[in-house]
Design a protein around this nucleic acid. Structure first.
Lengths: 143, 143
DNA sequence: TGCTATTAGTTAAAAATGTAACTAACAAGC
DNA sequence: GCTTGTTAGTTACATTTTTAACTAATAGCA
């Protein structure tokens, strides 16, 4: 018999992955069903809504997304009129992205439901657990 | 200005996702480069190696993978002769999967490096942090 | 100026994933 | 027996992701 006494449930990458997937299932369903948004699109909206206008490059760096993914998300969001692009006059390679009024309202709703979702999850843990959990996750995520 | 004072870094699904991704990057690279394995294939090997022979259905349930993903992973692993299938005589719909000698040796190596990886990560946290982190993650993952 | 290197972003082809329809084997009721 | 329903697994097609090649703009420097 193999006797490795190392259970998959104890393997941190696996555990993190399962926890991440299970946790986001409910929330993901909400923005997917409600707005037909992809995860990357959701993230772009969130970055622009929360942190203000920035370039695609900035979003790549902050959200750790590949530029092709962001490029496609931006295109889709522009088509839906959730954001606009405008060139920087002194460097026409850069495009400043900003949410439209419509995009902002979508963000506001998403933000609210994210907050609500987070609070609901947090309630299932003690204050101490919440503190340590988030501390560890930030460290693992490199934040 | 939008003033939602809800930082993305505080949003648990986002944080979990980033932590999961960052954490698995190094490990993932090792089995991908070394064996050319996909994540699902890795998981199938791990389940069979750690928990013994079972059907594809069992793997779906345990690893929370969709049956098409498992079906393709099994096919790929069979082609590489990491596992074999054998029909159950009384119900020919079921196929018992088991690792070959070769598959077992791959598992043994992966298991070892997973263990090593996990220990390295664990060392960056205190005993208490490790305990609580894993406790919370298990709860979130539904284990 | 003219040459090369770098940077922001897009596009195209290949690989992986998700969704749905499908086959084959079995089960239950009649 | 025969029908209907369910189950394990596969296949086909559409969507998404990844990887790599590409365009256009700028920077550095001889």
């Amino acid at each position: 018999m193999q006797a490795p006494d190392f259970d998959l449930v104890d393997f941190l990458p696996y555990l993190l992955n399962q926890a991440a997937e299970q946790t986001s299932i409910g929330f993901q369903a909400s923005y997917k069903a409600r707005y037909g948004l992809l995860r990357t699109e959701w993230r772009v909206i969130f970055h622009l809504g929360r942190y203000g206008e920035m370039t695609a490059k900035d979003i790549c760096a902050r959200a750790r997304l590949h530029k092709t993914k962001v490029s496609r998300a931006v295109k889709a969001l522009e088509t839906r009129r959730y954001l606009t692009r405008s060139e920087l006059p002194h460097d026409r390679r850069n495009e400043i992205l900003r949410l439209t009024r419509l995009g902002q309202s979508v963000f506001a709703e998403l933000n609210l439901s994210a907050r609500h979702f987070d609070e609901t999850v947090a309630k299932t843990f003690t204050a101490e657990e919440n503190r340590i959990l988030r501390h560890c996750l930030r460290k693992l995520a490199g934040f």
